[in-house]
């Protein structure tokens, strides 16, 4: 079986990332490819189109640089997300001002529609009909159709040049296992991109060590694996706001 490339550093994993690429970024609280994003920040890559749940915030910590920082640095030309602006009058979101002045394009999508657009991209299905958003501004200008007396709106699939993935476990064949709610967008994004780069929490094990019945994403989708090295970020402690790091 062809095997994914296994590299030893985040910088190596994202080396050669092409300008003007589209990038899928999972995460809903947990499950974010934090270390790959920080590595992408260190490259000169620009002109990105990103697909993610939200647009995020800026971080002062170099190890936590992510989508919000790339957006504010002008390196993203378009965001596709379920949250593009703050819903609190007291807090203005990262992207809002840039969209308002025309330097950033945005595509606001209901979250289930976003997930289904990604799954469709990975499933080879070009479009689908959903009830979400019918009768709201998000359905403006889109094709509507009735099925069984109910109105649905047509939405189209998403497929990207890259997906950055956060997995709990992986084997050398690229098979992936996710943990708890860190799964979120990871499995579907891993199927909907040409280059799938995966940061892994646990040591990468030999092919065969993960039971085939327990695999969440088969390795044939995976391009590159990198284990989060000692000192790399596992997650953010929500009480302290501090990064919890890989220790061994």
């Amino acid at each position: 079986m062809p095997r994914p490339r296994i590299v030893m550093s985040m910088d190596e994993a994202v080396a050669g990332f092409a300008d003007n690429s589209s990038l899928m970024i999972p995460g809903f609280g947990p499950g974010q490819p934090t270390n790959l994003l920080a590595a992408l920040w260190r490259t000169p890559a620009t002109g990105l189109t990103t697909i993610s749940n939200g647009v995020g915030f800026e971080s002062a910590d170099e190890d936590l640089k992510g989508l919000g920082d790339l957006v504010m640095a002008g390196r993203v030309t378009k965001v596709i997300a379920a949250f593009t602006a703050s819903t609190r009058p007291s807090r203005t979101g990262t992207a809002e001002a840039l969209v308002a002045n025309g330097t950033l394009k945005a595509e606001l999508v209901p979250q289930g529609t976003l997930a289904e657009r990604i799954r469709s991209g990975g499933a080879g299905v070009p479009a689908f009909y959903t009830p979400a958003g019918v009768g709201t501004e998000t359905a403006t200008g889109k094709e509507h159709r009735e099925f069984g007396g109910r109105t649905f709106v047509m939405e189209t699939a998403l497929f990207a040049d890259y997906a950055f993935i956060r997995a709990w476990k992986a084997d050398t064949a690229g098979n992936l296992v996710f943990r708890r709610a860190a799964r979120n967008f990871n499995p579907i994004m891993a199927t909907a991109a040409r280059n799938v780069i995966v940061e892994v929490e646990q040591p990468i094990v030999e092919a065969g060590e993960i039971d085939p019945d327990q695999v969440h994403v088969p390795g044939i989708y995976v391009t590159t694996l990198v284990r989060i090295p000692v000192g790399g970020v596992l997650h953010i402690n929500r009480a302290s706001g501090m990064a919890v790091r890989q220790t061994a």
Partner: peptide
């Protein structure tokens, strides 16, 4: 008017 800014999350679905 509709400008693709907002926070929908899963609410519409």
């Amino acid at each position: 008017p509709w400008n693709n800014l907002g926070g929908i999350g899963g609410a519409m679905d």
